[in-house]
Each structure stands twice: as structure tokens, then as C-alpha cells.
Nucleic acid binder design. Structure first.
Lengths: 231, 231
DNA sequence: TACTAAAGTGATCAAACGATCAATAAGGAA
DNA sequence: TTCCTTATTGATCGTTTGATCACTTTAGTA
């Protein structure tokens, strides 16, 4: 028979937590739930969804069993983590911004990607997005669709307008045009992958890189348009 | 007490395995090792490195304990999987191809990315690369360095030559130039991520998309070079 | 202050999983 | 055929981990 000796450290004085949790611990249902999700986002984005509920509880300073008083299963926690991370990041004003033809497309793209990457280029966000792809969770599909419908389609539409080509309402977008936009967007998003997944990118500010990327894109697109129109 | 009933299916006739493993099972050390790694690559790329040794053994049609006669720990299997997947994919002739100034840069890039993506755009390869980033394994660093040193640096060098700018040997490459190349490369690689990580891309052939991507890049780069030279 | 609804906990279960080991059996050598 | 090396196996160990449950503690209220 083996004995596991657990060292019981006295916590009578003060908790070491940075939160205002001095000596009370009993929180309201809503507060505790929020707290759990918030820490779960941080935790799972660090270690992946293989992370253990015990460690999550330890970080929260609560017992592991309490987690299961709030969420029936671990997967339910993960589901909520997705929702938390995906939702409420997209700003509707970006859609009008991209379509505002009173400004040069170059300006609009620069402002959009500046704000967009500021909202998205975050450790938790990027990693959880990639994890979701690996886990085969369907939620990422919503993200891909959002990018496609709200960003890429708009960019393609504006490119048409800039080059005095017919609106997609009249002549539907071709696969080649969408590919171009994906390629452009992917190049920018790949910065985030290098940074948060591979850790090979240590810079904080990518304004210059994004600016140049937009510059190359806008200057290079006409060459493909010419090739498309030849057919 | 609970009993786990294991259904023992008679395998007297023929094994269902596609391999030539009819009734014999005893393989040589080398053969078995190869077989294990080969299946491990397939298995772990599907389910991630959280996959279980029991399931891996089941797929191989061997006992789980045999795995540990060939590899001390599960991590050793994973290490070998990395090596198998990363190594021997890079073709040295690509380096000379990219630098062959007797051909237009456009041709060279098209041929290179055509062959490169043919070698790399593979379910196992892409997923294991991404897993390695998540697991924090250091081996991915080698890949990032390879891309940087053998591809991006070369592309930047050739761009200089195309635009009659000084060789990097004289004037070192700037961060902006490297960023441009990363951006270009990332846009192409992001196709693979959409396909194998998110499953949102179902096409098989990306020749056209890559062609257009190269076209945009080469036509767009001068606009940035101008901006760099102004300073 | 006493009561009570509900937040919170510790002990524990059962399954999953990596790893070990004594026993088995395949197949080449003699 | 017999023998012996070694590939292979089944049983099992010890730990980890998600989940459960009876019990304890907190804090608002009458």
C-alpha cells in the first residue's frame, strides 16, 4: 500500500490571489461562472484542450469538483470557451468601413487590418482558433465564413470598383478573385500563426509589414485582372 | 466487480490487412520499426499527439506492449514521427533552381512552388507541423529556419537582382524585404492550413491560385521597393 | 441569533492510459 | 528434428483524470 502525503499549508492569513478575494470565497452563480470561463480561456489557450480540470481549478483557487457544479462536463466548458473567444470580437462598423468609397481603398484596407489585427492578434484567440480546427469542432466554420463573407467578398467587390469592372451583382466573383483575396488575407494571418503557434515571431507591431503587404497586393492585382480579362 | 468481455474474433483464415501479412507475424527489427513509424505518422496526424498507444497498436495489428520494446517511451515514437515527416522532403536542387538567373524569376517561382507544394501539401505533413507548434517542440524551429534561409532569403536576393539593386552581400536585407517574402510565402502556406487544419478548402489543385499569387507578388513588389529607396 | 438555501469541498469511483514483465512462440541454425 | 535467440504477447501495475456524492460552510434573511 502506498501513501500519498499531501502537505497542507495553512492559509489562515491572506490569500495570495491578486483578485479582491481576501478572505471570502462565496461568489454568486454568475460571478463564479464568468470567472471560470475567463480562466479557462487563458488556461486552454496555453496548454491546449488536453489541459486538466484539476489544474484549471487550482488556478482558480477552487476545488475541482466545483467546476462540475457549474458545467456538466469538461466539453461544456470548452464549448463556452469557444463562444467567449469568437463572439463579440467582430465590429460591424468594419463592414461599412471597407465599403466606404469616399476614401481610397488603400486607406480603408490599412485602417481595417490595423484594427482587425489589433483585435485578433492575441495569444488566446489565435491558439484556440487553431485548436478548434484540430479538434474538428464545427465552430471554426463560422469564422471561416465570416472572413469570407464580411472581408474577402467585400475586398473583391471594392477591387472591381477600383478597376471600373462590373459589380459582383452583375458579374459574379470568380474563383480566381476569391483566391487572390484569401491569399492576401492568409499572408497577414500567417504572421499570427508564426507568432502565437510557432513563437518564431517576437515583434509586437506589424503595422509596417501589413502596410507593405497591402501595397504589394493593390499594386499587383491589376496584373492578374488583365490576365483574367483576356479570356 | 465488473467484467470486460472482449470479443475474440477468429483470425484463422486470412488477416484482413492489406499488407502481405498472411499468417506469419514475426518481422525483423528494422521492418517492424519502419512499420510502426509509418503507421504512427498516419495515426498521430489524424488525432494529434494525444492519440493512445493502444489504438496505434490496434491499427498495426500488434500488441501495445510491443511498441515499448521498440521505443522506450511514447515521446520517443513522437520524436521519430517528426524526423520522418520533416526529413527527406527538402530537395537540394530547389536551391539552385531558385538562383538560376538564366530563367525569369517568375518561371522559377512557379516551378519551385509547384514542386514544393506537391511535396508539402499533405494531410500528415501539415498537421504534424502545426501540432509541433502547439506542443512547443523545438523541431519546428528547424523548419522555420529552413524556409527562411533556403527560400525567403533566396527570393529576396533574386528580387534585388531583378530590380538591379545591390546584392545582400553588399547591402544586407532589410526587415521589410524579409517581411514581404514571409507574407508571400505565408499566403501560399495558408492554403494548406485551410485545407488540412480547417478542412474548409476541398480543391486538390492549387496551380492557378499559386500562379496568380506569384503574379501579384512580382507585380506588386516594385511599389514597396520604391518606398524603401525613398528613405 | 437562529435558520436555510445554496455555494463549496474532500473523498472516492471508474475508466483511460503509459509502462513493465514474465511467459510464449516463431523461425533460422545446427 | 532439436535448440536457442528474440520477436511478440497478455496480464498487470501505478498514475492520471473526468466525474460523482455526501457532507460542510457561507451569508442573506426573518
Amino acid at each position: 500500500m502506498s501513501w500519498k502525503v499531501t502537505l497542507k499549508v495553512s492559509q489562515s492569513k491572506k490569500s495570495v490571489k491578486s483578485k479582491k478575494q481576501t478572505k471570502r470565497k462565496r461568489l454568486s452563480r454568475e460571478e463564479r461562472e464568468k470567472q471560470i470561463i475567463s480562466e479557462a480561456v487563458r488556461y486552454f489557450s496555453e496548454v491546449g484542450f488536453g489541459g486538466q480540470t484539476r489544474e484549471l481549478a487550482r488556478r482558480l483557487g477552487i476545488s475541482q469538483s466545483l467546476l462540475f457544479r457549474y458545467f456538466p462536463t469538461k466539453d461544456d466548458i470548452i464549448k463556452r470557451v469557444y463562444e467567449e473567444v469568437y463572439l463579440s470580437r467582430w465590429k460591424p462598423e468594419w463592414e461599412t468601413l471597407l465599403s466606404d468609397r469616399s476614401r481610397p481603398l488603400s486607406d480603408r484596407l490599412n485602417q481595417f487590418y490595423h484594427e482587425y489585427t489589433a483585435a485578433i492578434f492575441e495569444f488566446e484567440w489565435v491558439r484556440i482558433l487553431v485548436f478548434s480546427g484540430i479538434k474538428g469542432v464545427t465552430l471554426y466554420q463560422q469564422y471561416i465564413e465570416l472572413v469570407h463573407d464580411k472581408i474577402l467578398d467585400r475586398i473583391c467587390t471594392e477591387l472591381r470598383a477600383t478597376h471600373n469592372l462590373p459589380d459582383p451583382g452583375k458579374v459574379p466573383l470568380t474563383e480566381r478573385e476569391t483566391d487572390l483575396a484569401w491569399n492576401f488575407h492568409g499572408g497577414i494571418f500567417y504572421i499570427a500563426i508564426r507568432k502565437f503557434i510557432y513563437g518564431s515571431e517576437t515583434r509586437e507591431d506589424f503595422t509596417a509589414a501589413i502596410e507593405d503587404s497591402i501595397s504589394v497586393f493593390l499594386a499587383g492585382v491589376p496584373s492578374v485582372f488583365k490576365s483574367i480579362l483576356k479570356k
